[in-house]
Every structure is written in C-alpha cells, then in structure tokens.
Write a protein that binds this DNA or RNA. Sequence first.
DNA 1: GCATATTTGTCCGTATGTATA
DNA 2: CTATACATACGGACAAATATG
Lengths: 216, 216
Amino acid sequence: MSEGSAARTVSNQLSEWITEGQLPPGAKVSETSVAQRLGVSRNTVREAFRLLAHDGLLVHEFNRGVFVPLVTSADVRDVYRLRRIIEPGVVRSLGRPDLHRLARLRSVVAEADEASAERDWVRVGTANMHFHRSLVSLAGSPRLDVTMRRLMAELRLVFAVIDDPRFLYEPFVRRNRELLTMMSAGRFGEGADYLEAYLADSEGAILAAFEEKESA
Amino acid sequence: MSEGSAARTVSNQLSEWITEGQLPPGAKVSETSVAQRLGVSRNTVREAFRLLAHDGLLVHEFNRGVFVPLVTSADVRDVYRLRRIIEPGVVRSLGRPDLHRLARLRSVVAEADEASAERDWVRVGTANMHFHRSLVSLAGSPRLDVTMRRLMAELRLVFAVIDDPRFLYEPFVRRNRELLTMMSAGRFGEGADYLEAYLADSEGAILAAFEEKESA
DNA sequence: GCATATTTGTCCGTATGTATA
DNA sequence: CTATACATACGGACAAATATG
C-alpha cells in the first residue's frame, strides 16, 4: 500500500522485476500477462507502462508493445556524458558550504558505510544513487533533479545485468566521503575536479564489466 | 489521418491549443470535454494527456485532473540554467567543424531569415527553437536531445502568454547566424562564450516581458 | 458539516489493425 | 498467402474522490 494509484503500484512492481533481473533486457512485457499476474486491468498496466517509459525503464514501440531496454555500452557512455556535465557543474556552482543541506549527504554517506561494513552491496548501490541525486538537488533546480532521476533509473538497468556489483560500488564509498569533506570545507572547485575523475573511473569500471559480459 | 496513433493526433491538437493560448496557463483540461470535441474515447484522451505530461506541457494531479502548467519566472530561470549548462557545453565539446552536420543549422538560419523578412514572428520563433535543438543534436547524445526537447516545449508554454514575441526573437536571428559563422570556422571556444552571453540576454528579455505581464 | 453533482480512476468486453510465424 | 497472436482503440459501466451548493 502507501500508493494512491493502482498504476503506481504496478509500476513499482515492474520496476523491481526489472532491476532485479527477473525481466532481462530485451524481454517483451505483455500487457495481458502483467494484468493477469497482478490482478489489474490492461488500462492500468498501460498507465504503468507510460510511467516507466517516462524514466527510460521501458521502451514503447508502436503497435509492437513494450520491452525492457537493451542497454549498450553507447548508452552507458551517454549517461556518463550527462553526468559529467551535470554533477561537477553543480558542485562548482555552489557558493558556500550550506551545512544544513549537506547534512543529507552526510547521512547517505553514513548509510553507505554501514551497508559496506555488512557487505550488503545492493544497499551500498542504492545509497550511492541517493548520494548523487542529493548532490544534484543542492543546485535547487527541479529540472536537473528529474534529469538526474532518469539517469539513475537507467543506471539501475545497467547494474541489473552485472553479476558482481561489489567492485562497482565499493571503491566509491570512500570517494563519496572524500568529496563531501571537500564540500564541507567550501573547496568546491577542488571537489568538482575530484568528481570528474571519479565519474571517469566509474564509467570505466562499468564499461569493463560490460566487455567482460560480452566476451562470456 | 496521416498519423499512426489516435493519441498522437489528440496530443498534437492539444499542443496547438496550448501554445496558441486557447488553453491559458492554469486552465483545467477535462477528459470528457476533449473526448467529445475531438470525437475520441476517454481512454485515448488519457493517453494523449500522458504524452503531453511527458514533455511538461500538461501537469497531472492525481484524482484532480490535468492542467495547463502555471509557468513562473522561477521556471524560466530554471529552464535557462539548464540551457546555459547544455548548449555552450555542446559547442565547446565539438572537435572540428563537421560541415555536413552544420548544413542543417544553416538551413534553419535561412528559414529564420526568410520568416523575419516576412515579419512572421511565429515562424521565426519555431525556426529559432529548431536552431537550438539542432545545435544540441550535434553532440550526438540521445539523452541531451530529449532533455532539450522538453526544455523547448516548456518555453513554448512561456511564449504563449507573451503578447508581442517579436522583440524576443528578432534580435537573435542575427546572433544565430553569427554563432554559426564561428562554428563553421572551427572557433568553438569563442562560439560557446558568445552563446553564453546570448542566452543570458534571451533570459533577460523573457523575464522582462514577464514582469511587464505581472504589472498589468 | 452535509448532501449533491461532477469528474476521475479503474475495469470489462469487443472490434480493428498490425506484425510475425 | 494465410493464420494466429497481440496491440490499439472504442464504448460502457461502476466506484471513489473531489468540488459545489
């Protein structure tokens, strides 16, 4: 429960199935099968499809149906191209350390540390996504926020096909903390540069995992 | 006719009504009234609503219906914040003048010149939008393209409430041509700086028109 | 605060068009 | 080329939420 809309419930369920790999990339998602399995009408399922297509978690092909997107390495590069534009730009644009708003980042970092200690890499991953979304939210731009939300949703799609997400997240727990330290001290220029290198490494790690996947 | 989807036809019609000011900002758009007026079913109208909400041309409030967004000066500032990040960044990132891809920009500039000579400011406006979208498309990033499309759709919403769009577009016909000249010569850094000032002026002009509107 | 009417959310059944085997 | 499966679109219906008096 906790959702006002049946379509939202369906979309949340589908989102789980996709990010947990139960719906592999390229899979066709049938209206009727989803409707029957979840006990809702086809119209509701169609509504949910639109919500997810909005975030790029499903693609809609006219007169053919909806499919789980086939993410390519080109997509990964494109997502990171936008991240490299947005995230360092946000950090660079911050005037002075607003400790109150940085508190949210701090709690997310703590969450990641805790999850990392428990070797719960899935939780580390979600905490990492929260970190970057919270980072962008510091800019106070609604449109940057929705853009970032979409990018992160697409990244969840990527991580769903990678077996061992540990080495993708673990190195960046420390770097998130480092970046936060710089920002707390008002060293935004330095932080932006640091984040640029950070994102380049992150992209490289994902692409490497992709190539490993392709060779298998 | 001519479009594969009935929902697309409806959304195009609604888009016209909105951008032409027949549906003023804040107006509620009823499902049944649209369905009756266009002779389609309610479900199809709902589908069209979702398409437009996707681009920000309508906002959807649960159990309340859909409304034409009330654009504020804060929204204008936010849209231009993203434009100032994206557009100059794209120009700066271009390696060398790809004359083949610049041809599209050239034709759009010519279109704007022609429309300007005929004092058809609406056509000048659409040509201007095409110019900036084509500019961003040079980056070859699908995600930047969709982001830019949404931003431009929101700007159409802004222009719909401004009476005299002439002084909003006319000064920028020349500046588009100037920018294109710089890019054709491979002077991308210079072009990016030029575009930054350009966008700042454009934002200022729109905000001025807004304040004039508010005082009235 | 209450009763009303309106509108939206959801569901069902069906017909038509499209893609694929 | 035919046949099958499926998506699109339609119309009607009821429940639930909202707005109005």
